[in-house]
Design a protein around this nucleic acid. Structure first.
Length: 437
RNA sequence: CGGGGAGUGGCGCAGCCUGGUAGCGCACCUGUUUUGGGUACAGGGGGUCGCUAGUUCGAAUCUAGUCUCCCCGACCA
């Protein structure tokens, strides 16, 4: 992509309303613009990141055997009256009326809708287990939206729902999602720690939150230092026992959010316990028949009896992750994207944009990089070199390649690693090879 | 909802106390200039000062109301 044809409205100064790093940087890097409190438009650069995260989440859900669907954002109130959550959910639910006066709502979550889909079609235990997910915009009319996309009112969430015959099977489904979450966050370049959690309004008795450790996190967290050295599984076990082993490993060391942590009863050695702050990026629940019972979602079991299915739900805040990753990955100059989610892999800077020879060489290199499949953002503008470097540092692409008249004379491109600041000089051919290997 | 703060070109701000018809930096446009970490100079475009009502000869400025945004608390992916 040529910068001259792109839409990248970067800001030199911090907008007054943005208080935390990720919000400031997302505005300054031209990723988002605010529409109303907690509601944002995603501009091209931000949208690319959002889609990359979404894709990684999708791949890991698919790998875990979940099936992608897409449910609507607007729902009828009827199902929510059936599950008794229409009144319980309170003012956080955005309620609207259609032209005929029918009560509608903008979905804050989808347990009711997916349960309705399930119960209409599935009759037999032989069709279980099933796990369906979608990645869709949600709306929760938060009392106080803040921190940019970290706590928006409108947000993109992956939510999955599992259906099983027995509680034991349900726990297996839960474990599969638990492992998928470990893999997902690791691929995103994050250290996320599963913590025992309160089940809140979703209800149930088995629940974990996944928190990214970052100084600006919203909740205080307490965890054993062993977590810092644990590596997410690279293989997904084929068996339920294998899944359970991983869950056991990851739930053995102590970890709790402030709501669940009790300093008086905590028996951990103080030297082993780390106190920090965390950003909740995922939350999984197993809640049995909490919804299947009132909504009468049942299948016939092996003995012929109708049994309410055992359900779980599994959320990942996709749009929140964009902010969460920036909180964990930035420095004084701007964002430092993990390569897996970077909007482009490489920034190519033409330092001699007013020099025909240099521009011809940069154009050629750009075309070769594109042809080789490298995601490259080519700064072909006539801005000064300082401005170009500063802008590239701000948007945080993993690699920056600079070519100017001086390099042209020596036949080399200067390649900088955004994270380490290391610079090397390479020939154009070596650059292409390095970017494609 | 309780407590605090703010609304003046795209962004950051000054002006308000002590009313006289809007200014600075960045960004943007034109020209010249500058060969490597936000180049310099000159010229230029863009704002009915959140909105409504009031006071006044006259309101960004004073008064009342209202809307919006931000921060602290309870809630959450």
């Amino acid at each position: 992509m040529r910068l001259s044809r792109y839409f990248l409205p970067t800001l030199k100064e911090n907008p007054a309303e943005a208080q935390i790093a990720s919000h400031r940087l997302m505005l300054r890097a031209g990723m988002i613009r605010q529409g109303a409190a907690g509601i944002y438009s995603w501009l091209p650069l931000g949208h690319r990141v959002l889609k990359k995260i979404e894709q990684i989440v999708r791949e890991e859900q698919d790998r875990a055997g979940a099936l992608e669907v897409l449910m609507p954002t607007i729902q009828s109130a009827e199902l929510w009256q059936e599950s008794n959550r229409y009144d319980d959910y309170g003012k956080e639910m955005l309620r609207i009326e259609d032209r005929h006066g029918r009560a509608m709502l903008y979905g804050p979550t989808n347990e009711e809708l997916i349960t309705d889909i399930f119960r209409r079609e599935v009759r037999s235990y032989r069709d279980l287990p099933k796990n369906m997910y979608h990645i869709q915009w949600k709306f929760r009319d938060e009392i106080r939206p803040r921190f940019g996309v970290m706590r928006g009112r409108e947000f993109l969430m992956k939510d999955a729902y599992s259906f099983d015959l027995t509680p034991e099977d349900g726990v297996n489904s839960y474990n599969a999602m638990f492992v998928a979450y470990l893999r997902t966050f690791a691929r995103l370049g994050l250290k996320a720690i599963p913590m025992r959690a309160d089940t809140g309004p979703i209800g149930g008795d088995l629940s974990h939150e996944f928190l990214v450790i970052a100084d600006t996190g919203e909740s205080e967290v307490f965890f054993h230092k062993d977590f810092l050295n644990m590596e997410a599984p690279t293989e997904t076990p084929e068996t339920n026992e294998g899944l359970q082993d991983i869950v056991n490993t990851w739930t053995a060391p102590y970890a709790a959010t402030e709501e669940m942590h009790d300093a008086d009863t905590c028996t951990e050695n103080a030297d082993d316990l780390i106190t920090g702050r965390g950003i909740e990026v995922g939350h999984i629940f197993f809640f049995g028949d909490k919804y299947s019972k009132p909504m009468n979602a049942a299948v016939q079991g092996p003995g012929g009896a109708m049994t309410n299915v055992q359900m779980g739900s599994y959320g990942i805040g996709v749009s929140r992750l964009v902010g969460g990753i920036i909180e964990a990955c930035h420095d004084d100059n701007g964002i430092v994207w993990p390569e897996a989610v970077a909007p482009f892999k490489l920034g190519l800077l033409n330092l001699g944009a007013k020099n025909e020879e240099c521009t011809a060489a940069c154009d050629k290199l750009y075309k070769e990089l594109e042809a080789a499949g490298v995601e490259v953002l080519y700064d072909d503008t006539k801005d000064g070199a300082g401005a170009k470097f500063a802008n590239m540092d701000l948007i945080g692409l993993p690699w920056q390649a600079a070519l100017g008249p001086r390099g042209l004379k020596n036949g080399v491109v200067e390649l900088k690693n955004r994270a380490t600041g290391e610079k090397v000089e390479l020939s154009p051919e070596e650059l292409i090879q390095k970017m494609t290997s």
